[in-house]
């Protein structure tokens, strides 16, 4: 239905500061409401119409294109600090329609609809002939890789036992034959080393999430898994601006499963769960 008096709307430039401000509010809204997957960043503003509102204010109708970043939505890192997933990594694009009400210079989202789709295999092949493509998340090899990686992580973890929360992304690498998987985990009230029956463990009331990247290599007569997990500080109910330094990524190195557990550089024991970022490498 037309908004405001009649069909009069104005069409500012898509690169106007005001239009960009509206688009950035929209992208923030996406990243705060995405239930799973990865944060998105603004790529292009396709179209904008501004309708006058009664008794005051304006309604911005805006179409934007976004690109997926490498930060999971559970990662507290601000999206400005997140790297855009590149074409050769099988990029994912978002296509969104928003309506934002501007009153007293402040935007608020009234309507949001987004679709996302991975780049085509042909486009990925154009920039990198041998790069792996995204795999279905319910592929048995992907599920097995995530479960094996989490088991390896829990077996070496001195803290609480973690359960699989979501498989977020996976690729089947042809050479060497391996499965790369990214997934999120959630802390439970069991101790990792003692948790014999995962079913007996319940999730912590104060959710503690982690994000893992793992590769399962298929070897002759066996398999080898390397996993890196970053456990995030338990989030308060509403997301608060992070303290200085809370988002510093700790450099991680991948070690084989047989090596003794190693700890983040500069420490001699595992970080306590309360520290801002706790990366455990196995």
């Amino acid at each position: 239905a037309p908004h405001g008096p009649g069909l009069i709307y104005r069409q500012p430039n898509c690169d106007d500061p005001e239009t960009e401000e509206a688009a950035l509010v929209a992208v923030d809204y996406i990243n705060q409401h995405l239930p799973w997957g990865y944060k998105h960043t603004l790529n292009q503003i396709d179209e904008v119409k501004v309708w006058p509102q009664q008794p005051f204010g304006e309604m911005f109708e805006i179409e934007i294109d976004t690109l997926e970043t490498t930060c999971h939505v559970l990662d507290p890192t601000p999206v400005a600090g997140c790297r855009v997933r590149q074409l050769k990594e099988h990029a994912v694009e978002g296509d969104c329609d928003f309506q934002l009400l501007k009153v007293n210079g402040k935007f608020s989202v009234v309507y949001a609809k987004c679709d996302s789709s991975p780049d085509s295999a042909e486009d990925v092949r154009k920039v990198c002939r041998d790069c792996p493509l995204l795999a279905p998340l319910n592929d048995t090899r992907v599920v097995h890789a995530a479960e094996a990686a989490l088991a390896a992580f829990n077996a070496r973890n001195n803290g609480s036992n973690f359960q699989l929360e979501e498989i977020s992304r996976a690729q089947l690498v042809p050479l060497p034959p391996s499965t790369y998987v990214e997934f999120t985990i959630s802390g439970t009230d069991c101790v990792a080393k003692e948790a014999t029956e995962a079913a007996n463990c319940s999730l912590l009331a104060k959710k503690q999430y982690g994000f893992c990247k793992a590769t399962l290599n298929e070897k002759l007569g066996g398999e080898e898994v390397a996993v890196t997990c970053t456990v995030f500080q338990t989030q308060p109910a509403t997301s608060q601006p992070q303290p200085e330094g809370a988002n510093e990524a700790v450099p991680t190195a991948v070690v084989d499963a047989d090596a003794p557990a190693s700890y983040p550089l500069g420490t001699s024991e595992p970080l306590s769960a309360g520290s801002p970022i706790d990366t455990r490498v196995f």
Binding site: N13, C14, T41, L42, N43, Q44, I45, E47, A91, E93
Partner: peptide, 27 residues
């Protein structure tokens, strides 16, 4: 005498208002 009709001319290249600039790359 023969006079040319006045023809309007754009001051410079007309930048289409939309779509806007691509900040990263197009998929």
């Amino acid at each position: 005498s023969v006079v040319q009709p006045s023809v309007g001319a754009a001051a410079g290249p007309v930048v289409p208002p939309c779509p806007g600039r691509v900040r990263h790359f197009k998929v």
